[in-house]
Simulated scan of single mutants.
Amino acid sequence: MDPADESASATRKAELACVVLAHDQPDQLHRLLAALDPLPVFLHVDARTPDPVAAAMTRDLPERVRLLPRVATAWATFGAVQAELAGYRAAVAETSATHVALLSGSDYPLLSTADLRAVLTPLIGRSITYVAPLPIPQWGMSGGLGRLRYYHWAWRRHVIRLPIPRRLPRGLSLAGGPTQKVLAREHADAVVRAVDRRPELVRFWRRAWAPDETFVATLLSTPSLVPGYADHHLHELAWLIDWRQANIKGPPWLTMEHLPFLQEGRTVPAGSLPKLFARKFHSTLSAELLDAVDALRQEPLRTTPA
């Protein structure tokens, strides 16, 4: 970002658009959409969702919610990436948002929409992503490179790997990280443009394992595809997720016992980034906690001395 752009950014206020990928829980989804009011939302409903459930999820949506074309977003397949990219494309084309957040239907904001904008305003032109170069030690013996080096298929939540290595694409800075991210408008636009210019990358990643954790992360990390990202992002996760238990494959549903955990995420040293969202919430198991979170969202952010 050149000095003129930085000066212009200093006088602007952030605007946030949200891409929400959902596949069930109509009540929870509608509660999330209400909590995001008045932000524009680009909603994707898994094509595998039964018609009655999908109808309940999309019934009586406010005008600020746009439906994305439905694709199948099966576990660990490229469908989730397709939906993510469609959301970025629509958000950049149809809004003036300075940032685009990628959420699931089981996520929920920890801040009011006014506070979300206030937190993001000093970060105009910057993304918030927890992306690291491959290999990542926590991702097994290959550090995640095996996810790309071999052909993969998912079948009933099982991995099928063809044990014949393939050539990795050249000229890329391979990277990975959590799917949750807040992209600066410029970076979301650059990702979409890179996909349009390099369709062979989509073909390659269709047979990668869990491509939603490596595809966009790699595009962002490759300067020739997303220029400026390296110098204009925060290496942080803007989501509060409970990974405190050992040897779990996924985070637990949040309940009232997690309220102190969520309160802690909203209490940060002055000048630091609070957690913007949390996951994962269930329409019934988390109902009491969601009521408490809605009350918290009306309170000022808590800060401690830096």
Rank of each mutant, 00 (worst) to 15 (best):
A83T: 11
T267Y: 04
T58P: 12
A93M: 00
L110I: 06
D60L: 00
P26E: 11
A175C: 09
W153Y: 05
V45R: 05
T218K: 05
L240R: 15
K181I: 13
L39M: 13
L262N: 12
P62E: 04
L240A: 15
A56G: 07
S173R: 15
L285D: 09
S7N: 05
E288V: 02
L123H: 14
R170P: 01
A72K: 13
D291H: 12
H158T: 09
W153K: 10
L67S: 06
A35Y: 02
W139D: 13
D37N: 13
E63C: 05
E186D: 13
R203S: 11
R48C: 04
W205L: 05
H158I: 00
A97W: 01
L296S: 10
A306S: 15
K280E: 00
S112Y: 08
S104F: 07
H233W: 09
A175T: 11
R266H: 06
Q298W: 04
M57G: 04
L301I: 14
G79Q: 10
Q138L: 13
A93L: 00
V159K: 14
V19S: 07
A184V: 03
V195M: 15
L290V: 15
L234S: 12
R89H: 13
E15C: 03
Y150L: 00
P52G: 02
G271D: 00
D27M: 08
T58E: 13
R279W: 04
W239S: 04
L85K: 08
P252E: 04
T218L: 06
V45S: 07
I160G: 13
V216Y: 07
L296D: 10
L285G: 06
E213Q: 14
R12L: 10
R31G: 03
